[in-house]
Design a protein around this nucleic acid. Structure first.
Lengths: 166, 166
DNA sequence: TTGGAATGTCAACAAGGCTGACATAAATTG
DNA sequence: CAATTTATGTCAGCCTTGTTGACATTCCAA
């Protein structure tokens, strides 16, 4: 090809140079800090951490979800999750009900207090995300989603896609 | 406006509905896991963690950087960074040289062994990022970058932009 | 020379990962 | 029915990585 040029040897692939990729890597690093900054501040007041936020988020997303399902989504050990879940249950933010179909399972729900904290956290996080979306524009948002979806591990993509329709 | 419709009350803002935003939030969460998965596996073998990776990455990006500069970029306490830096120096991956201009400062460099580990880590991470970029396409990559840049805190954006030209 | 800045270090603590072991209850399977 | 598997909880202990506080050293600059 006569128009071949540059380090990548192909102009159509210039967005795949190592430097472009490195910028993407650093963008992920710095942006993730912003992404978690607002919830982190709110959680710190209550003495909670990101692990609590994640549990609250996914229980809110799928009320009645089981411990096992949460373990698969969060990718942590049951001991680790249990510690977090225990404090949330003891503090009255999460309700754990014995399963009806299978009584070994525990169905997890947010209490009113839990839902209130969830709203506080997600409002803060959504405000920043909304501002970023608005600033970048709809086409950028679509691209953002496409790249992130391509970056996920297969297992995680399944958990993500399961609620795509909403 | 006659065409006003939907929860947002404006068709041109449909990408800003709470559900769209929530999808963006979960995309960040799941994608970040993929983003760190490969380096995490490599680091675990050596007995290192993400903190070591971050230090190695930014020393490699800016050879001769000072401890203070690294602190500002990483956003941790000097005690926390010092512990990580200490192990890297003791293990012969990082070289700490007394500053010439200001002898209170320490200029940090990767040794050959440190550079080797850096290459191993960044190759793994870049491979995934490159695959995601290729799959999503150049326009999506541009959007990805725009959204992430808009999501950063001001301080972090400054650190990010400082090396934009590469 | 004195103050302040940059750095290092020690100690203590907490969150939240991990592994391993073990208990219990309930469902499932042979 | 008995044995096994599954879902969950819990205890103990370990690691990384964050935090605060205190204090020493070095050295630049006013």
């Amino acid at each position: 090809m006569a128009e071949s040029a540059g380090p990548a040897g192909n102009e159509t692939l210039l967005f795949l140079t190592d430097d472009q990729i490195r910028k993407g890597i650093e963008a992920m690093f710095f942006a993730y800090r912003g992404f978690t900054a607002d919830p982190d501040r709110i959680l710190a007041v209550q003495g909670y951490g990101r692990a609590h936020h994640r549990a609250i988020h996914f229980i809110n997303r799928s009320p009645g979800t089981t411990v096992n399902n949460l373990l698969a989504i969060l990718g942590v050990t049951k001991q680790s999750l249990n510690r977090v879940l225990r404090t949330l249950i003891d503090d009255g933010l999460v309700l754990s009900e014995v399963g009806t179909r299978d009584r070994r399972e525990r169905n997890l729900y947010l209490t009113e207090a839990g839902a209130a904290l969830e709203r506080e956290l997600s409002t803060a996080q959504r405000d920043r995300m909304r501002a970023a979306f608005r600033q970048a524009g709809p086409d950028a948002v679509a691209g953002f989603r496409r790249v992130l979806e391509a970056m996920m591990d297969g297992d995680m993509r399944r958990h993500y896609m399961r609620f795509r329709e909403f």
